[in-house]
Nucleic acid binder design. Structure first.
Length: 807
DNA sequence: CATGGCGAGTCT
DNA sequence: AGACTCGC
C-alpha cells in the first residue's frame, strides 16, 4: 500500500478532562466547566474548558479567578491531588477506555496523547468498498461531517458520485477512499459515544499531518475530511506554524529565513533550496509537506513507551534541603510504583531502564537540567526501589547538590527546580522466573509493599559512620543516607587548610578542583589576551589577512594557569582594590577603551558594595544560603571559611546573590561565561539551521568590517558578541588548526582562545558535574564521560604549537 | 514564579 | 547516554 494513498484519521477528544468530570459528576452536565489544576494560586491554572464556558470567553491560560469573572456560574472541578501533586490517572484511564473502543476498528492505532489517537483505516476502507457501493453514500451516513473546499458534505458526495466532473485535479480513487473513510469514522465516533459517553472530533486525510491539521477545524463533535484537491486552498491562508512540528522554534526560523508566513508560500522553493537553507532531512520534509505529502506511518502502539512523573518547584518552592529532596523523590517513586504495578498487571511487561531528571537554579535564576539513567538488574526489585535509586542517582551524579553540612542543617547547595522519574525500555515478561519478579513483588501483598518506613533519618544524620562500600551495597534504606553523609563529611576536612587564606598552596589545590575557580583565571586571561592581540594589530589594516599572525605564545601558559596562576590570591584587599584589580586585567591595552569601560560598567553595575559583619560561625541561616558560583560546583572548600572574622560581601545585581569579596572576580567571570555560552548556542543554531542564509550568520562572512574589533564601537550587548564572532573568523590565508572538539577551523593564533571558549561551554554545562566515580554505584551507571574534567589536557595546545611550526 | 505534567522523538 | 525540542 503506497504511503500516499492511505486513509489516516486523527481522533481527538473534545475538552477531554471536562467530559471526564461531567461523566463522573452528572450534575455538571450542561453547565460551564473548566478543569483547574491543584495549584491554589489565584484559583488554580485552567487546563481544560468545555464549550459552554468557551462561549462565555473562558480560555486556557486563565486562572480560576479570571474564569469566575468572565463566567460567575462556572464550575471548576479540580484535578485531584495525590502525594502533593496533580494526579491525572482518572483521565488516563478514561483515555484508555476510549482507545479500547477505537482499537476495535483497526489494530493500526497510535495513541498520540492522553486524548488523541491516529488510526490508519486504509484496510477497513478497502474492505468496505468490496461490499459497499460508494454511490450509495448519503448524508445520513455522514452526520456532523465537513469536507474542506465544499460548502457542505452533500457537495463532496456529489463530486465523488460524478467523478469530480468539475475539477481537473480531482483524484477520484482517493476521494472515494476518503468518503468511505469518513463513513467509517462516523461509525467509530458513534461507537465511542455509545460505549464511553464521550464526544470526539476527527480529521480524515491521507496522512497524519493533514489529519491532525483538519481535525481541529470543526469542533466539537465534528469530523472534517480533507480531499487532496483542497490542500492548496487550505494552505493559501494557513499560517505555517499551525502545522505540526512547525509550531516551535524550527517553524519560526523557517518563517524568518524564508520570509514567509503561510504554508502555500513554501511551494515556491525547490527541494534543494530548502535543503541548503536547513538541513537535508528538514529540507526534504518541508518540501514534501508543502505539497501535502507526509510519509510518516501510523505506528501500532497502544501502550505508552515510558511511564514517568515529575514536578516543578518553581521560585520560592524550590527544594533547598535533603529532607525535601527525599520527600519528593519518595512521592514520585511511590507513584511510579503504583503505576508500574498497574501496568505490569495489565500489560505483563517490565521496564528495563529508569531515568531520573532534575534541574537546579543557577544564581541568575535560569536553570540547568540534567538526567541520569540506570539499567535495572534482576535484583533491583525491592521495596521503595525507585525512590532509593533516584536519590542515589541524583546525589551520586551531582556533586553540585552536595549539602552544606552545618549544625545539622542539611541544605542542598543548589535549589532544585524540577524532579522527574521515568521508567521505560519495557520488555515483555516471559515465562522465565526472573522477569516475573516484579509482578510477584507487586502482588505480594501490603506487608511487603508498604514496607514500614522506620524513622531512620535522625540518628543517622548527625553521626555519619564510616561505611564499607562493598558490604553495604543495596542493603536497606539507610544505605543511601550513609553513603551520602560519607561524602558530605569530607567537606570540613577539605575546608580546614583554606581558612588561612595566606596559604597559597592550599588555595591552588582547590582552584584546580573547581571548574568555576578555574574559570576566573581562564576568562580573565582570555579577555586580556584578546585585547592584547587587538592592540598589536595595526588599526588601519583593511583585510582579514592582516590580522596578526604571531605564535600563540602563551598557549602553554594559559593551559597551565589554572594550576599555577596566582590570580587567585585575594586576601587582604579592599573592595575597591578588588574591583580595580579586575578592571586592571583589561586595562593593559589603553586603546581598547570600549572593553575597559564595559568591564568597568559591568563590575560597577553588578557589584553593589554591601559590607556585612560576619562572625566566625554563620549563625544567620541566610549566610549558609548564599549561593554563588562555586556553590553550584562541588567545591565546598572555599565556602566554609566563615572562620574569618569579617567578610566583606557584595550583592550581585545580575543575580541578586551575595558574593564574598574574594569571589567577585570569579562571579563576574561566571556571568560572562553564561553569556558566552548563550551566544555560542545561538551561533551553533544559526549555523546549523540556516547554513546558507547569510543574514543570519554574519560571522561567517569574510567581509572587511568583520575584522576590526578594536575599532568596533559596539555597545555593551554587542561586546560579548564580538568576542564570539572573533573566535570563528577565518580567512583563507590564515593558518588554521582544526578544533578536535567542534571540527571548526580556527586561526592558529586564536586557537587557545577557542579552546578556552569550549572551556566556557563546559563550565556552564558542568554545573552538575561528576567529579569522580563512586565505586558503590559504579556498576549501575556507565560513566565514561570523556573530558568531563575541567582540567585542561595539555595535549591539544601542544599539538597546535607543533602544527604551527610545521607550516 | 506563574500552564503543569506529561509523553514522544531527535541530535550529538 | 544525555540534552533538547515539540505538542497536548
Amino acid at each position: 500500500m503506497a504511503q500516499e494513498n492511505r486513509v489516516v484519521v486523527l481522533i481527538d477528544m473534545d475538552c477531554f478532562y471536562c467530559q471526564v468530570e461531567e461523566k463522573l459528576n452528572p450534575e455538571l452536565a450542561g453547565k460551564p466547566i473548566a478543569v483547574v489544576q491543584y495549584n491554589p494560586w489565584k484559583g488554580g491554572g485552567i487546563i481544560a474548558v468545555n464549550y459552554v464556558a468557551r462561549a462565555m470567553g473562558v480560555t486556557r491560560h486563565m486562572r480560576g479567578d479570571e474564569a469566575k469573572e468572565k463566567c460567575p456560574e462556572i464550575q471548576l472541578p479540580s484535578v485531584p491531588c495525590l502525594r502533593g501533586k496533580a494526579d491525572i490517572s482518572k483521565y488516563r484511564d478514561a483515555g484508555k477506555d476510549v482507545a479500547k473502543v477505537l482499537q476495535k476498528f483497526t489494530p493500526l492505532l497510535e495513541r498520540a496523547s492522553i486524548d488523541e489517537a491516529y488510526l490508519d483505516i486504509t484496510e477497513p476502507v478497502q474492505e468496505r468498498l468490496k461490499t459497499f457501493n460508494v454511490n450509495s453514500v448519503t448524508t445520513d451516513l455522514l452526520p456532523n461531517t465537513y469536507a474542506l473546499g465544499y460548502d457542505n458534505v452533500e457537495q463532496f458526495i456529489a463530486d465523488v458520485h460524478s467523478y469530480g466532473s468539475d475539477s481537473l485535479e480531482f483524484d477520484y480513487e482517493h476521494a472515494k477512499q476518503l468518503l468511505i473513510g469518513a463513513v467509517i469514522v462516523s461509525e467509530i465516533r458513534a461507537a465511542v459515544y455509545e460505549e464511553t459517553g464521550y464526544r470526539c472530533s476527527a480529521g480524515i486525510a491521507h496522512n497524519k499531518i493533514l489529519a491532525k491539521l483538519v481535525c481541529g477545524m470543526n469542533k466539537p463533535n465534528k469530523q472534517t475530511v480533507l480531499p487532496k484537491h483542497s490542500i492548496n486552498m487550505l494552505y493559501s491562508t494557513l499560517p505555517l506554524k499551525k502545522v505540526k512540528h512547525l509550531g516551535g522554534k524550527f517553524g519560526y526560523t523557517v518563517c524568518e529565513v524564508l520570509k514567509i508566513t503561510n504554508m502555500i508560500e513554501l511551494q515556491v522553493f525547490t527541494e534543494k533550496d530548502l535543503q541548503n537553507k536547513f538541513d537535508e532531512k528538514n529540507g526534504t520534509w518541508l518540501y514534501k509537506i508543502a505539497r501535502g505529502i507526509d510519509l510518516e506511518p501510523v505506528q501500532a502502539r497502544f501502550n505508552p513507551k515510558s511511564i514517568g512523573c515529575c514536578k516543578q518547584f518553581k521560585g520560592k518552592s524550590a527544594l533547598l534541603d535533603l529532607e525535601s529532596l527525599k520527600k519528593w523523590l519518595t512521592d514520585l517513586g511511590d507513584e511510579i510504583e503504583d503505576r508500574l504495578e498497574k501496568d505490569a498487571l495489565e500489560n505483563n511487561r517490565t521496564p528495563k531502564q529508569m531515568v531520573v531528571s532534575f534541574s537546579t537554579y543557577l544564581p541568575d535564576g535560569r536553570d540547568v537540567s540534567s538526567s541520569r539513567s540506570y539499567n535495572f538488574t534482576d535484583d533491583d526489585l525491592c521495596g521503595e526501589f525507585f525512590t532509593k535509586k533516584a536519590l542515589e542517582l541524583v546525589m551520586d551524579t551531582t556533586e553540585g547538590l552536595k549539602i552544606k553540612d552545618e549544625e545539622g542543617n542539611r541544605r542542598l547547595k543548589a535549589p532544585i527546580k524540577f524532579l522527574g522519574i521515568s521508567v521505560g525500555k519495557f520488555e515483555d515478561n516471559t515465562e522465565s522466573k526472573k522477569t516475573k519478579r516484579i509482578v510477584d513483588y507487586f502482588c505480594a501483598g501490603p506487608s511487603k509493599v508498604a514496607s514500614a518506613k522506620p524513622k531512620e533519618t535522625e540518628n543517622q544524620d548527625d553521626k555519619p559512620k564510616p561505611c564499607d562500600k562493598k558490604s553495604t551495597e543495596k542493603e536497606g534504606k539507610e544505605y543511601i543516607l550513609r553513603k551520602f553523609f560519607q561524602v558530605s563529611n569530607k567537606a570540613p576536612v577539605e575546608n580546614k587548610p583554606i581558612r588561612d587564606l595566606s596559604e597559597e598552596k592550599n588555595i591552588k589545590e582547590i582552584v584546580v578542583e573547581s571548574p568555576l575557580d578555574k574559570q576566573e583565571s581562564f576568562f580573565a586571561k582570555f579577555l586580556n589576551k584578546n585585547t592584547a592581540q587587538f592592540t598589536e594589530e595595526p588599526k588601519s589594516s583593511e583585510t582579514v589577512s592582516d590580522i596578526v599572525i604571531h605564535p600563540p605564545t602563551p598557549v602553554c601558559d594559559v593551559i597551565n594557569c589554572g594550576e599555577n596562576s596566582n590570580d587567585t590570591e585575594y586576601s587582604g584587599s579592599t573592595i575597591n582594590d578588588e574591583i580595580n584589580k579586575s578592571v586592571a586585567l583589561f586595562e593593559e591595552d589603553p586603546t581598547d577603551i570600549d572593553r575597559v569601560s564595559n568591564m568597568r560598567k559591568l563590575l560597577n553595575s553588578t557589584m553593589i558594595p554591601d559590607v556585612i559583619e560576619t562572625n566566625s560561625l554563620p549563625k544567620n541561616p541566610e549566610d549558609s544560603q548564599i549561593r554563588n558560583t562555586e556553590d553550584l560546583q562541588e567545591d565546598t572548600a572555599i565556602n566554609n571559611k566563615a572562620s574569618t572574622s569579617k567578610i566583606e560581601t557584595f550583592v550581585c545585581s545580575e543575580c541578586s546573590k551575595t558574593i564574598e569579596i574574594d569571589k567577585v572576580d570569579m562571579h563576574a567571570d561566571y556571568h560572562l561565561a553564561l553569556r558566552l555560552r548563550d551566544e555560542e548556542r545561538q551561533q551553533v543554531r544559526s549555523e546549523r539551521k540556516v547554513t546558507s542564509a547569510p543574514k543570519i550568520v554574519p560571522q561567517q562572512n569574510t567581509d572587511n568590517k568583520s575584522k576590526k574589533p578594536s575599532l568596533d564601537q559596539s555597545n555593551d550587548k554587542n561586546e560579548t558578541s564580538s568576542i564570539a564572532s572573533f573566535l570563528v573568523k577565518i580567512d583563507d590565508t590564515t593558518p588554521t588548526e582544526k578544533c578536535a572538539e567542534c571540527g571548526k577551523r580556527v586561526p592558529l593564533d586564536k586557537f587557545t582562545e577557542h579552546l578556552d571558549f569550549h572551556e566556557a561551554q563546559r563550565l556552564s554545562r558542568e554545573i552538575n558535574r561528576k567529579p569522580k566515580p563512586t565505586e558503590i554505584t559504579g556498576s549501575a551507571v556507565k560513566r565514561k564521560r570523556k573530558s568531563a574534567s575541567p582540567v585542561k589536557k595539555p595535549k591539544m595546545p601542544c599539538k597546535s604549537i607543533a602544527s604551527f611550526f610545521s607550516r
